[in-house]
Design a protein around this nucleic acid. Structure first.
Lengths: 211, 211
DNA sequence: GTCTATAGATTGATAGAC
DNA sequence: GTCTATCAATCTATAGAC
C-alpha cells in the first residue's frame, strides 16, 4: 500500500465518520479500522486528530471555493460588460448551486457537504474556525456583489439577510435525507433538483423583500 | 444542600456546557465541577449522561412548546371566529417570536436556545431524536395552519419551505453573538429586536413567493 | 512507511461507607 | 442523598523494531 493510498483512505474514512457521527464522537481507532490501516499511520501522516480534520476540510473546500469564486466573478464580469448591476438571483445561484451540486461529484462529497453544513453552528472552535477562515473571503465577495445588486437595502440589513440565507442553505446541506421531519401524515419530500430550485426561490424572495 | 438544589445545579451546568462545548465534548466531571456537586450525584439523580441530556432538553422545551402551541391555537381560533383563513405572517410570528424571546427569560435560557437550535443538525441520534420527538407535534400543528393560510401552494412545496424557515430560525438560535461573520470590513450586526423582525420578514417572503 | 506495544490521561459508571 | 474510592474501558499520542 503506497503512501498516497493510505493518506486517501484515512481522509475518506475520517470524512465519513466526522460527518455521520461528529468529530468528538469519532475515535482514531474507528477511522483506522474503517480505512483498514494502522492506528499509528494517522499521526504519522497528519500529526494529530485536529490536523486530520483540517486536512479533511481543505481537501474538498479549496476546490469548491475555486468553483464558487469563478461563478461569482463570472456574474460580476458579465454585469460590468453590460453596464448594469448584477442581479441578486444570479449571485445567489452562483454561490448555492455549485455547493449543492458538489454533493453528487463523488461518493464522499455528500458526507463532506453535511460536515461543512454543520460547521457554522459547531460549538467547538477547532472545527468552526477552521471552516470560517476558508469561507470568509468568498462570503465577502458575495456580500460585495449583493450590495451592488440591491442598493436599496442598507448594508447592515443585507448582511443580516445574507446570513439568514447561509443558515437556510446550511440546513439543506445537513439534511442527508431530503426531510428532517419524516412522518406518515406529512407530504413526501421533493426530489433533489426541485429542492435546489425551491431553495433559490426562497432565499431570493427573503433577501429582496422591502425593509 | 437539598435534593432539589443539586438536581437544578446539575441541570444548569449541563445545559451551559452541552450548549457551549457540545454533548460529546462535555464530561460528567466538567459538569459536576462547575455545579460544585459530587460526581456520583449525576448517576444517582439522572441514571446516565444520556438521560441527563434528555432532562436538560425537557425541562425548558415542554414549557416553551406550551407557549408556542397556545399562540398558534390563538391565531387559528381568531381566524375561525372571523370566518377567514389565518395569515402566514401571524402563524410564523406565533411560532418564532416566543422561541427567540425565550432567550431572555432566564440566564440559562440563552444556552438552551442555542442547544436546541443545533439539535436538528446534530449527527448523534441520542441528541437529535430526543429533540425531534418533542418538536414534531407543534411542527405538525404549524404546518396544518399554514396549509390553510396558503392554499395556493402544494403541500409538498409548503412543507419544504417550512423546513427552510425552520433551518433559518435554527441558524439564528445558534448564533450566540448576533453575527457568525465578524470582520472589520463588514457592517455591525443588528440589535436583537430588529434581528427578530428581519427574520420574520425573511421567512415570510420566502414562504409566500410564487411556485 | 508500516507495524506492535504501550504510555499516560480521561472517560462513564458503580460499590459501599456514612 | 452524599461522599470516597475505584473499576474497566476508552482515548490520543508516541517510542522503537523492522
Amino acid at each position: 500500500m503506497t503512501q498516497c493510498d493510505t493518506k486517501t483512505r484515512i481522509l475518506d474514512s475520517a470524512e465519513q465518520l466526522f460527518a455521520r457521527e461528529g468529530f468528538h464522537n469519532t475515535s482514531l481507532r474507528a477511522i483506522t479500522s474503517l480505512a483498514d490501516v494502522n492506528l499509528a499511520s494517522v499521526n504519522y501522516h497528519f500529526g494529530s486528530k485536529d490536523a486530520l480534520l483540517q486536512a479533511v476540510i481543505e481537501r474538498r473546500l479549496l476546490p469548491l471555493n475555486q468553483i464558487r469564486e469563478t461563478q461569482i466573478r463570472g456574474v460580476l464580469a458579465q454585469a460590468k460588460e453590460e453596464g448594469i448591476p448584477p442581479t441578486a438571483a444570479d449571485l445567489l445561484r452562483a454561490f448555492i448551486e455549485p455547493t449543492l451540486e458538489f454533493r453528487n461529484s463523488s461518493p464522499g462529497a455528500h458526507d463532506f457537504i453535511s460536515l461543512i453544513g454543520r460547521s457554522l453552528s459547531e460549538p467547538d472552535e477547532t472545527v468552526r474556525n477552521c471552516f470560517l477562515a476558508l469561507v470568509l473571503p468568498i462570503f465577502q465577495l458575495l456580500f460585495k456583489g449583493l450590495c451592488e445588486a440591491l442598493p436599496q437595502l442598507s448594508p447592515a440589513i443585507l448582511l443580516t439577510r445574507l446570513q439568514f440565507a447561509i443558515g437556510t442553505m446550511s440546513h439543506v446541506m445537513c439534511m442527508g435525507s431530503l426531510s428532517v421531519f419524516n412522518h406518515p401524515e406529512l407530504p413526501t419530500p421533493l426530489d433533489q433538483n426541485t429542492l435546489i430550485q425551491q431553495l433559490l426561490k426562497f432565499v431570493h424572495a427573503g433577501l429582496e423583500t422591502p425593509e
